[in-house]
Design a protein around this nucleic acid. Sequence first.
RNA 1: GUCCCCGUAGUUCAACGGAUAGAACAAGAGACUCCUAAGCUCUAGAUCCAAGUUCGAUUCUUGGCGGGGACACCA
Length: 549
Amino acid sequence: MKDLIRQRINNAVKKKFQIKDFECSLDVPDNNKFGDYSTNLAFALAKKTKKSPKEIAEAIALEMAKIKDFQKVEVAGGGFINFFINPAILEKAVGEILKAKRKYGSRAINQKNNKSKKQKTMVEFLSANPTGPMTLGNGRGGFSGDTLSNVLALSGHNIFREYYINDAGNQVKEVLSKSVKKALGIDLKIEEGEELYGGAYIEEIARKIKKEKGIEWVAKTHSRVGVLAAKIILQNLIKKDVKSFGIRYDNWLSEESLHKKGLLDKTWKILIKKNMVYEEEEAYWLKTTKYGDDKNRVIKTNEGNYTYLMGDIALLYDRFVLRKFDKVIVFVGADHHGYLGRWYAACEMLGIKKDRLVIIVMQIVRAIQSGEEVRMSKRKGTFITLREVVEDIGLDAARYFFISRDFNTHIDIDLDLAKEENNRNPVYYIQYASARMNSVLAKVRNHKRRITKHKKISNLNDQNSKYELDLIKKMLEWPGLISEIAGNFQVYKVANYAYELAGVFHRFYDNCRIIGDEREKERLLLIRASKIILESVLRVMGIEAKKKM
RNA sequence: GUCCCCGUAGUUCAACGGAUAGAACAAGAGACUCCUAAGCUCUAGAUCCAAGUUCGAUUCUUGGCGGGGACACCA
């Protein structure tokens, strides 16, 4: 719909002012008195043409009013052009929804003739360290990453979901090892200031390892204790939760596997060859400042070990060069924002255009309980697991909560309040709309056994169908929203849209009698269409479309 | 000290640089002989401060103030 109008605008501007290149907005105004769509193009063109916005707007409006897609084209507010869509167009659009069903809005429908290859896109999200259960904060990346993947898939990307397991570093090989040993009462040196993982889960894992391998093995083994513990955590805690939260992955990639394949050595040689490494104070440094980083980074320590950065670079090499992804999107927490510089620099060193790497930085999630922040620390064993929260408030509510917030905003969750106020979670408002749709359709099925088959809705006009029109217009925003989010990654807009869609549906439902009304046929079609859209939206968010409540 | 994010009704969140700053919850009022009242309708209530950019700034720039996070030869 939007594309269509934009095209019409371009034609009109070309005809009237001979201008091809210009930018202007095309929005759905908040207030429907300003039409179904609105543009500011007259302001944009005012400078170029040296005419007043009003003059320009009137000329364009006059031209566009000739097109029968519009019922009315108006100039208002000193130069805005407001378009009122002809209801006949809306009738047709509903037919398209009913025909396309769950594919409505996907690229397959929008661009049938586009044979260009799908973009091969990787989304890495969650990637919680295998040193403990997933915490509350992991919910943000987990659910948003999952949702973004769904949106991108719908918009025509070839999506590959990957979880990166940090199983090769100190945290696992040293800290986790020691933590397990300590839990088993094995004597070991703990340096001052060194913090180990604690809490019940460590004890449980320690017992399990002891049972499997024997205490002797644990006592005389070093890093492999941690590696084993990480494996157990990944298997018994993380993968299990991920599955029950409805999150899917195409691949679980272990950092250790990159080491074993010799990818770090290989990437190291490439960097040496490109003269990107220098030696100073017995360590090796990477010249990341050459590509915009604020300082150079150590890449091999004076003890001869690669730093974590080397692993990241090998990972970039693996994803872009070996596995040939066109684009890689990575979700990271705000505590990693300082790494962006070196990652982008590394990309350029490897000859990878840096816009192929998209890093989404999510702000921190904090938990408040009894008025105080709960400091999450796997080491102290004080943390709130994502599982606890999901069990408390339910998966749908938890998903909605995390998905519905912009990544740039900080989230404080008051746990007491969250439980108490859970029944006010917007997700129920949305699911209630779904339940109402299903309920009406079920009733019709029972009485008449068959829902009318024809797919055309007619006789729409402003007088008798304000609520119907509002519903249709909202439905038609869905395809545009998918492509918008595929471009700007603002996943929270899906959640907002779901809420708005439910809202126009509730108002329609309350104001328009369906069964027994003279417009019954039309309204049933509307319900079927809105069910298609709402279910599509909920599917993207991984939230159940309830049939009953 | 340097860097990143945030500051909007009492509270939680919206608003590609656009028109009268939207919702929800909390407060107050209203409507069911009819498809689910977890819904609908109405009332009251907000842009942290100061300059700048321009037809127009919650949005962009600069400087404050306030909150959060990051600044390792750890990961």
